[in-house]
Amino acid sequence: MEIIMAFVIGLLFTAAVYLMLSRSLLRIIIGTGLLSHGAHLLILTMGGLDGKAPPVLTDGVTDFADPLPQALILTAIVISFGVTAFFLVLAYRSYQELDTDDISAMKGGSEDDE
């Protein structure tokens, strides 16, 4: 199971890096989304994938799964949701303002507005 996860995470990171290296802002944002998905899966894998019983609710279970990774992942998902949403708004605004979503065309920026 860990091997499969390792490949999935690796694939996500590869795709994320590929997308983030492109020039279109939208692709970059999708890339950051994939990157955080990969990171979340990594937490899941690092917490152990041994399929034990759920940690609370049932009495008499001695072999618990670790409850912490899911809490971490949930927190990280919420945060990446917020950041991605903000990033999308920003990308849209700058597309309106700068008339391009090509990140290399935004280079420098003019000095006159301040």
């Binding site: 917020g82 949403a85 903000f86 999308l88 708004v89 849209y92 309106q96």
Partner: peptide, 13 residues
């Protein structure tokens, strides 16, 4: 609140 603010910001203009 956050979701709707974002949707409105993008959708408004």
């Amino acid at each position: 609140g956050v979701t709707m603010t974002i949707i409105q910001t993008i959708g408004e203009d």
